[in-house]
Structures are given as C-alpha cells and as structure tokens.
Amino acid sequence: MNDIAVMDVTFTLNNEPASARIEPRELLIDVLRENFGLRGAKRSCDLGVCGACTVLVDGLPVSSCSTLAADVAGRSVLTIEGLGTPQALDPVQQAFIEHGAMQCGFCTPGMVLAVKSLLAAEPSPTEEQVRHYLRGNICRCTGYVKIIEAVMDLAKRGARLKTNP
C-alpha cells in the first residue's frame, strides 16, 4: 500500500522551479502563502465562489482555497507576484491603476489574474464576454464599472494589436 504521510510536490511557480514537502490534504493557498510567502492570493469565502484566492494554473484561473497543492505537481502556477514588478507593471495592472479599478484591493490580485487569463484566450473581448468571464470574481467596493472600463480599454488595445500586428 502506497500510504503517503508527506509528499514532495515539484512545480513551476512564477516561472521558476519550485518544490514543497506537503501533506496530501494541504491546500494550494496555504502552500503559496506559508511555504513561499506569497500573500497576494486571499482566503475569503473559502468555497471557491468569490475569486479572491484566484491564481492561474497552466494559464487558467483556479480557486487556490479549494485546490490541493498536490494537484499542481508538474504544472505551472502564476500568482500576482509573478505578473509584473513595481518598476514594470503588467499591462493589466497598469490599466487597473489608470482606471481606478480598485478600492480596498482585496479582490484585485484575483481579478487581475482572471483578466490576464481572459485576454490570453481572447485579446479583444466584448463587454458581454468580460462580464461573463469575471462573473466569479466578486468585488464589494467598486461596483465593477471601473473594472469593466479597464478591461475594455485593454480589449481595444488588443483589437488594435490584432489588426496591426
């Protein structure tokens, strides 16, 4: 019987090789926050509903509060800390700042990563597509309008990039 008390999980974290010794029941959010000191992902609803704990795994959003750390073995995890630097922000982060698309900031890391994933699949989404994709990321401050405006600004740039490569 291959009983597992602890296990080693090896994965890519923010484009660097990473490894952690964990229990099978450990959740990705705890390993990111406690083992790696990456506090961008927030635990809020703890049910996979609110999106504050969103990180990207192989480019798609996951709820890190409800994902086993064991499940990212061999995969690539991107957290908000891996997206840009204060000196060189990611275009999504820059657009959020320009449009004032945040207030308390608690949902922002998850929101930005969800937008990053959407734009990777669809660089020039319609407003309807944006609203649909962000449905699972809850913000209690902004009323969403400025977030949608920031993403639509990026979408316009994406459309220009598509027509003028």
Binding site: G48, V49, G51, T54, V57, L60, P61, V62, S63, T67, A114, S117, H132, Y133, R135, G136, N137
Partner: peptide, 11 residues
C-alpha cells in the same frame, strides 16, 4: 460555458 464560474469550469 455557463456552468458556475471560470474556475469551476477549468477544474
């Protein structure tokens, strides 16, 4: 495409 949210659909 309309199940729950993108994180639920992805996993």
């Amino acid at each position: 495409a309309n199940v729950a949210n993108i994180r639920v659909r992805a996993a």
